Simulated assay, not measured.
Amino acid sequence: MLQYTIRRLLSIIPVMLVVSIIVFMIVHLTPGNPAYLILGEDSSAEAVQQLEEQLGLDQPIVVQFFDWVTNVFKGDLGESVYSSEPVLSIILDRIGPTFSVMLISMIFTLVIAIPIAIFVVWKRQTVLDPLFISASLLGASIPEFWFAMLLVLGLGVSIPIFPVAGYIPIAEGFLLWLHHLILPAFVLATVEIGLISRMLRDGMLEAVNQDYTKTARAKGIKESVVLMKHVFANALIPTTTVIGVTIAGLLGGTVIIETIFTIPGIGQLLIDSIHRRDYPVIQGVVLFIAVIYVVINLLVDLLYGLLDPRIRYD
C-alpha cells in the first residue's frame, strides 16, 4: 500500500506538468498582446513595454514557460496584475467560501441520494422504480444556472426565505453562514443527487440477486439487513468513484453558482480575473482546480482498499 501510494504521488508530477503546459498555452497563445489587452486601447507604448518586462512577456515563450513552472514548484504563482498581490495568497483567501459551498452541497447530495437509492431498491418491483429513473434523469439534466435563477425568484424574491447574494463567514455565526449557503449548495447538489442515486441504485440492483445475497436470505436474514450489509456495501465501490468525481466537479460548478449568488470564492475570482485579463491569477486558479482533481482521484483510489479488503495494491 505504501509503495502504491508513493508511485501514485510520483505519477502526479507528469500529470501536473502536462496540465501546466495546457494552462500556459491557453493563456499565452490567445490573440493579441496580453500587456496591451490588460492596459487597454489608450495605453502608451512605454506602459505596454514596461508591463511586458514586468510579466516577462519580452522573453521567448519557452523561457517564459520554464520560468513559470520553476516558480510554481517553489510555491510562487506570480503576482496579480490588477492588485499586485501574490496569486497564491489571493487563492487562499478565496478558498473558504468555495469549500463551504462544496461541503454543504456534498452533505445535501449524500443525505438525499443514498437513502433514496436504498429505498428504491427495496421497493424495486413497484411503480417507484420508473418514477425514480425519470426524476433522476430530470435532476441530472437541469441546467444549473436556470435552476439557480428559479430558486432566486421563488425563494429569494417572491417568498424571501433565503438571501440571494453574499457570503457570511462561519466565524460570524454558524446559522448565518448556513443560511446564506443553502440555496447555492442545493443548486449544486441537484445534478449530483440524480447522478449518485442512479449509480448506487444500479449497483445495488446488480448485487441484489447475487449468490451471496440469496444465501443470506436462505439463512433467514431480513431483507433490510441483506440490503444494507451485503448489497449496499458491495455497490459502494463504483459509487465511490462517482462521488470522488462529483466532489471535484463541484469545484468547477462553483464558477457559475458563485457568480449568480455573488459569493467571493474561487469561481468568482476566476470570472473576475478573466474580465480584468489578469493572466497570472487565471493561470493560478486553473492550476489549483487541476491539482484538486488529481488529489481527489488519488484519495478515491486509496479509499478502495478500505472499502473492500479484497483489493490489494501490489
Rank of each mutant, 00 (worst) to 15 (best):
P86V: 08
S84I: 00
Y82C: 00
Q59R: 12
P60E: 10
E85R: 15
Q54E: 15
S83Q: 12
V72W: 02
D67M: 07
Q59S: 08
Q59P: 02
E52W: 03
P60T: 09
F65R: 06
Q49E: 14
V81R: 11
E85S: 13
T70M: 06
L55P: 04
L55N: 01
W68R: 12
G78Y: 01
Q49V: 01
I61L: 13
V69K: 09
I61W: 06
V63Y: 10
V69I: 15
V87N: 04
L88C: 03
V48I: 15
G78E: 04
G78V: 01
V87H: 09
K74M: 00
G78T: 02
Q54C: 07
F66W: 15
G56K: 07
A47N: 13
I61A: 06
V87E: 08
D76A: 02
S83A: 03
Q50V: 12
V72S: 01
T70E: 10
V63F: 10
I61G: 05
Q50R: 07
D76T: 02
V72R: 02
S83E: 11
V87G: 08
L51A: 07
V69Y: 14
E53Q: 15
F73D: 07
F65T: 07
P60A: 11
L77H: 03
Y82H: 08
L77N: 00
L77T: 01
E79W: 00
Q64H: 09
E79F: 06
Q59F: 06
D76H: 00
I61Y: 04
E79R: 05
S80T: 04
F73H: 00
E52R: 12
L88A: 12
L88K: 05
E53K: 13
P86G: 09
L88D: 13
V63H: 10
G56Q: 10
L55H: 05
S83K: 06
I61P: 09
K74C: 02
D67G: 12
P86T: 09
E53T: 11
F66L: 08
A47Q: 14
V63L: 14
Q64S: 10
Q64T: 07
G56D: 10
Y82S: 14
F65P: 11
V81C: 02
W68G: 08
V48A: 03
L57V: 10
L88H: 03
L88F: 13
Q54G: 06
S80A: 04
I61Q: 04
D67N: 15
D67K: 14
F65Q: 12
A47W: 03
V87P: 08
F73T: 01
V87K: 03
